[in-house]
Simulated scan of single mutants.
Amino acid sequence: MHGLQKKLAPNYVRTVFAHLSALLNAAVDDGVIPKNPCHAGSVKPPRAESKKITPWSVEQVKTVAGAVARRYEVMVQAAATLGLRQGEAFGLAVEDIDLAAGVLHVRRQVKMLNGRQMLFAPPKGGKVRDVPLPESLALRLSDHQLAFPPVEITLPWRMLEGPPHSAELIFTTRLHSLIDRTEFNRFVWKPTLIKAGIPTTRENGFHMLRHHFASVLLERGVSIKAVADFLGHADPGFTLRTYTHLMPSSEDRMRQVIEDAWATGRCALDVP
Rank of each mutant, 00 (worst) to 15 (best):
M1K: 05
M1P: 05
Q5W: 08
L8G: 06
N11L: 05
V13A: 00
R14E: 03
H19N: 10
S21L: 04
N25W: 02
G31Y: 05
V32T: 14
H39V: 06
S42Q: 08
S42C: 07
P46K: 02
I53M: 03
W56S: 08
W56P: 10
S57F: 04
E59R: 15
E59S: 15
Q60D: 09
V61E: 02
V61T: 12
V64C: 09
G66M: 08
V68E: 02
Y72W: 15
G83E: 05
G91C: 03
L92E: 01
A93Y: 04
V94C: 07
D98R: 05
L104P: 01
V110T: 07
K111G: 04
P122E: 05
P123F: 03
G125C: 05
R129Y: 10
V131I: 09
E135D: 14
E135L: 14
S136A: 13
L137V: 12
A138F: 02
L139V: 11
A147I: 11
P149G: 11
P150C: 00
L160S: 02
E161H: 09
P163I: 02
A167W: 04
E168V: 08
E168Y: 02
E168F: 03
F171E: 01
T172L: 05
R174H: 11
L175D: 08
H176G: 07
L178M: 09
I179S: 00
D180R: 14
D180F: 08
R181A: 15
T182W: 13
N185P: 14
N185D: 15
F187T: 13
T192Y: 07
T192N: 13
I194E: 10
I194C: 02
A196T: 11
A196Y: 00
G197P: 14
E203P: 01
V216S: 13
E219I: 08
I224K: 00
A228G: 01
F230P: 01
L231V: 04
H233M: 05
P236M: 06
T239R: 06
R241C: 08
S249F: 01
D252K: 14
D252I: 15
R266T: 12
P272Q: 09
